[in-house]
Write a protein that binds this DNA or RNA. Structure first.
Lengths: 208, 208, 208, 208
DNA sequence: GATGAATGAGAGTTCATTCAT
DNA sequence: GATGAATGAACTCTCATTCAT
């Protein structure tokens, strides 16, 4: 691992700085706790509950996330990162078609969580404005890679725009809230079947 | 005791009852106020705000709606009633095709409000459990009537399930939240055009 | 006592209103408690402490005094009222000279309390802007009456401006903070002696 | 263990001691920062603000000043020292009369700051009990020297007690808070003029 | 020794809910 | 019955103080 990679996120800039061990641990704990609490009680859950679950004092939480929106945004980004990162992992461990299907299911679960944040995201808070772009910037390339691999392998048809699929699956997930996950799964399966349909016929380079 | 016909709704019947006039007035005022406040500030809005807008004391509000969920459910039902009732009115005043289009737009506005209640509806509160059934019981017949009339007039194709359409339009409305009403309108127009397509050809009994 | 006197402060405007019995009692209790707590712990004392001493919930306190400055101003006015009102009482019960001396001592104690509010009064809060005028409007006539009576009785010289004396005594009280009340008393006695000096020479017009 | 002479003033003397340079620097920085912050935000200003302005960690501040009162007292003493020290400097650089006037103005500014500390000084904290004596011990000789020099030069009358003048000017400054510095200046000028009055005539030994 | 991350008591403030009038 | 004053639990947020690094 060369120095050039990774760069200096926001530390290591000064040589004397370290201490980060426990600080980093705490930040992780807070984000994980916040994710869980947000999912269980909504983004308006008491700060204390998050702090308690993370095993830190409220002061620690406030130090890192002065506003609730900062915390919400951080949780959102963290989940986007985690979900997007799985695309590569799945691609490495499964056939292109399987990887695509598995990741879309994974993405479905991400959306389920995001639903909880929806109200907050539309609150007009400055902090949230960059989130949609973050969403697209991370998910579009990840899904595009999966789609292209599957298309190249002849497992699905080509010519499907990643963003369209992201939105479609997203809407599906949101809309089926009342029936729960099963409905979403059924619709998702249908969609994937749709992608598969005609895959052979379009084996040849597709021009759209 | 001749005044036994005092109606039966869900109270009265006994002779001693009167006061109904202002009591009913208060209840109406509270529901109307709650609808507005819920739309503006969400279902977690302060009770006081609702009471103030309704021009009653908080005590009065609590007397009729001991729990917030009672009030939320009552508002929901009231809006379902109002929206469903308009179907007949529109059918009487317009051509079948127009009536259908106008009512679907009206229904779209209902959904917009309902969106605000969504979070609460999924809170697990007992009071909310009967709401989906109430929704379907009222809307399905109303829309079915409109559809059948329009089909009979040859303005749209037949064979469309009212519930499917209710859900489809509902999902459309919810999913397009980010782009706003315009998006919903465009999609709704498209849908209605779809219904119109092939109307003539299917004039004869459709076999599916 | 005729109806015309006293007028309707801020109630009785509508016939149906009363309830005020306990509300008034609470307001008095809060003001009295605030006076004591401000004196003991300064105007930044915890709201809870004041509420507890008054025997009311914090909500009650907030209901009447949404901002701390509202409470501070109310306490100030209440003390001005009380102190000014004593002038007439003392005049009725004592000789003009005695009444003057006793009231100035009373005023000295008022200033001692006001000292605690001084910092707050200069905070720039809008609510405090009318206070100096309130101070002068109430105290100047009260002291003027005492001075004129004493001068008319030949007990002190005439020609002393009430406002000058108010400020002089005020400064005296403030400035002697370190030595405490005794110093203030000595200086006040001196001042009163000064008023008496030459009274005889001006005796002429005196009719007792 | 030959370093038994651990002691003397209150540190140093022993060979092992060093670090003094930066330790002293830190203490100075803290006191200077505290002076500014106290003046700007009062003596209840957050510790962090002082530490930040001083460029040290809060831990360092607490090491040297375990209690806030220690810091307040240290600032007070430091300002007394600084103000008193200027007397000699001014005497060396100006005529006796000028030096006196300049120093009294300087003292006026000291009082202005002290006003901010007044509330704290009366808090009953043990640490503050020695402060009045410290005040007098340092200022009285300094002003006495200035007065005597000016009297000897025939620029002012003799027989004025330094302490009386210190109190008089102090009270003037405090009492004129509402009108601001201009009032204080005018009164101070008047006072100095008063000292000058009759200076020549009293050149000879004054009998009081 | 210096640093600043962590802690948590405590203060302000809101608002659901009760209950005297 | 209606009203709204009173209550106090619950929340957010700040900051003095401690202590691991």
């Amino acid at each position: 691992m060369t120095e050039s990679s990774k760069a200096a996120g926001d530390e290591a800039v000064e040589p004397g700085r370290r201490i980060r061990a426990d600080a980093r641990r705490n930040e992780d704990a807070v984000l994980e706790a916040a994710k869980q609490v947000f999912a269980a009680s909504g983004v308006d859950a008491p700060v204390r509950e998050i702090a308690a679950r993370a095993g830190v004092g409220v002061g620690t939480l406030y130090r890192r996330f002065p506003n609730r929106s900062d915390l919400v945004a951080a949780v959102f980004r963290r989940e986007v990162d985690a979900c997007a990162a799985e695309a590569a992992a799945l691609a490495a461990a499964h056939s292109p078609g399987e990887a695509l299907g598995l990741w879309l299911r994974r993405y479905t679960r991400f959306i389920a969580t995001k639903k909880g944040l929806a109200a907050a995201l539309h609150s007009g808070d400055q902090v949230f404005e960059t989130l949609p772009a973050y969403f697209r910037t991370n998910f579009e390339p990840a899904l595009t890679a999966l789609l292209e691999a599957a298309a190249a392998a002849g497992e699905i048809r080509g010519g499907v725009a990643a963003y369209d699929l992201l939105r479609a699956v997203g809407n599906l997930s949101v809309a089926s809230g009342e029936e729960g996950d099963q409905h979403t799964q059924r619709m998702l399966d249908l969609l994937i079947d749709g992608l598969r349909y005609g895959a052979a016929a379009r084996q040849e380079p597709t021009v759209r």
